[in-house]
Design a protein around this nucleic acid. Sequence first.
DNA 1: TCATAGTACTGTGCAATGTGTGGTAGTGTG
DNA 2: CACACTACCACACATTGCACAGTACTATGA
Lengths: 110, 110
Amino acid sequence: MDTTQLLKGVLDAAVLAVVNHEDGYGYDVVRRLRQAGLENVADASVYGTLRRLFAAGALTNYVVPSDEGPHRKYYGITDHGKEILATQREEWHQFAATLTHVLTHEGASS
Amino acid sequence: MDTTQLLKGVLDAAVLAVVNHEDGYGYDVVRRLRQAGLENVADASVYGTLRRLFAAGALTNYVVPSDEGPHRKYYGITDHGKEILATQREEWHQFAATLTHVLTHEGASS
DNA sequence: TCATAGTACTGTGCAATGTGTGGTAGTGTG
DNA sequence: CACACTACCACACATTGCACAGTACTATGA
């Protein structure tokens, strides 16, 4: 299945949640998201989201050299990012409940 | 809050669910969606979605004149539409569970 | 009669955002 | 030296919800 459209608007929250759990660099965040069940998320989407969130002041950024490959660009969450995450989490729960209701009840066979 | 992005990809399912419940015309579908909790859904979005779903063979279409205003363009769901609805509903439940998990567990304060 | 409001639908262009593709680079392995 | 894995980036693109503007019908009230 193609979850591309479903990701719209929630990838921000997902990335924030993962980074909030523990600082991470792009390649790693992608892996963690996939392990968590978002198996088809594209790396370009995550890198783009990280940059966007950083530009919005939701993330900090620091580079760490690696012995096993190229340097890693780590991201950490800021207080502002935590606020955004909290807001988006609530929005999600509210929205998910509403939509599940619509699909379950309004969607019942007539 | 702005749920615009969250609607991406699920408005199809929501509209199908509403029409599956009972045939409806655009203006009415908008009202029903809003009553169901999607309060900010724009009418242009719904009309566009109805046209898209009709073009995809998910809906039938018939015009009924009205005494209280302009004619009404009713939409009914087709078998193909019901299949799409069933698929999208499953996709939604799967996706919602995954994302809720990500936001709840991965999002826990470190 | 004319203004206004509610109903009902359409078209156009825009904004947001995830993705595909391709490219750059570093490290290690056969 | 070819190849794979790691790690990141830029760009053009597709999808889709929305704002805005416009058309048109009915009813109400000044």
